[in-house]
Amino acid sequence: MATFELYRRSTIGMCLTETLDDMVQNGTLSPELAFQVLVQFDKSMTEALETKVKSKVTIKPYYAGSFPSSQQYVGHLHTYRFCDNVWTFILQDAMFKNEDAQETVGRVKIVACDSKLLTQ
């Protein structure tokens, strides 16, 4: 099964990576075993997102002025990049909205791998 190392950059992945680094430096863990744990994390994280998460999110720019009628977008796509089957977007003034809540952020980076690579 193919996996992405993408999710290692998430909070949970970074915490695991730091933990493994500490344990390898302490000598309590071999680098090989630490790597195996990371690979297992890639699999488990991908599987959990597929099976445990049902939330849907919409990403849109939000209007700058207090009156939407002004139709002035502050939010926009600042940067787009497609390299090695990975899309990278940098959005300015984006609004993330799901069924529970919405968050607005001044600048956000989106890194997305090609989902078809996993199914192949």
């Binding site: 998430s10 998460v53 939330s55 999110v57 990403i59």
Partner: peptide, 29 residues
């Protein structure tokens, strides 16, 4: 005008971790 359809994502926004099964984005360049 750009549109993207994402899935199986982890968002870290405003110090919150948000997971999504599917996401759609629309924005202008």
């Amino acid at each position: 005008k750009w549109k993207c359809i994402l899935k199986d994502g982890i968002m870290h926004i405003n110090n919150k971790d948000i997971l999504f099964n599917k996401a759609t984005g629309e924005f202008d360049f």
